[in-house]
Design a protein around this nucleic acid. Sequence first.
DNA 1: TCTGGGGTCCTAGGACCC
DNA 2: TCTGGGGTCCTAGGACCC
Length: 435
Amino acid sequence: MQSTASEIFGLIDCNNFYASCERLFRPDLAHSPVVVLSNNDGCIIARSNEAKALGIGMGTPYFKQETLIRKHHVAVFSSNYPLYGDISQRVMDVLMRLEPDVEVYSIDEAFVRLPPGTHDDLAGYSRFLKATMQQHTGIPVSIGLGPTKTLAKIANRFAKTDPSAAGIFVITGEQHLKNLLAAVDVGDIWGIGRRHAARLKKQGIHTALELTNCDDTWIRRQLTVTGLRTVMELRSIPCISLEKAVPAKKSICTSRSFGQAVNTLADLQEAVATYAAQAAYKLRRGGLRTTVVDVFIRTNSFKKGEPQYCNRRTFTLEAPSSHTATLIKVALASLKAIYRPGYRYQKAGVLLNGLVPANCEQLRLFHAPAPGDTSLMHAVDAINKRWGRDTIQSGAAGLAKKWHFRQMQKSPAYTTRWSELPVAKASFPESVSMA
DNA sequence: TCTGGGGTCCTAGGACCC
DNA sequence: TCTGGGGTCCTAGGACCC
């Protein structure tokens, strides 16, 4: 409950984030429907309010909505992650200047912790936060406040959906909380997914309030300890703490669906080499090396009539590495072992596990340490950073990349590439033109 | 024709050890 | 007729998140 004795958690969530980012540089679209597509222009992953009002569903395949989209002149964008990442950084910077205890939870969400008694007027303070973030970044946010992170999530939901909330929602007392929980579907609770929701409903548990009244042992059996933790949080007992430090990565994955089905080993080799090289770069950027390289390939399971195949192969390295050539070599060997001709492949990927910091390696008693020379990779990374991605790349990654994913409607890298900066033009009326 | 990508955590079961 | 107990580590699969 909100009381001066306990801390308050807040969830700040950017509204329709990707669509809002696209609008920043297209003010002409401020009041028209906008959607953003997933990689490969496959699914709709962000919608402006106007697009939601047209009945365009989250995660629905683009091709199924195309008629509706044309009919209402919906603006369509391929996803532009460099842009969204950069805008996200600006949003988080502004928030962190205002509040000391911030957890960046995802590209468009952050939790904050307000110590007891720091803000008397929580709703008023939230309005100030919201207005400041809007003014400094141009991105609209919604704010929910409650006694735990899970309840802050629920409050945020009401901030977005309750028209009278105007983007701010504070849980204010025991009875208020009970009324809210009675109105929340179990499937809408943070941490309860589709499977668990269906299972709970089958057993007569439909609302968050009903779930909080269940027996702990029963909950643990049904939903494991993570589910029990969630229920505790619904009961206003904080169990999920604020994580200010970014935890170390445990795995890195690079995978894509192909723009069109691939059936030759040569094309798959190009793709897998490309993904291995990208994964190696992510390792170096994060100051990490990998010890376990996993390669997987699969056909398109949506095509019921076609023969299906999927397989993966794990390879453990003798010594941790982040060297592009090393990773490509083992990835291609794994690919060769699992490739079967006669299938139309839809997706491939490289997954790295067993990550270790680049600067502390476990040596082995009877083997010489791996060569410590990383200057080649440093040089390649520096050149690509200066002159653009893939200025230098491995030959195995190919140049034609026929299999490359579709990205038909991508907006410019407005904020991260010199050559694509937006240009502002001023025009003066005749009367004030220079003499 | 066209259905995303990148993560984390938990559990059960098997292999193995003394 | 009789056949232990306690533990770790690894992996696959399932569930969740944005």
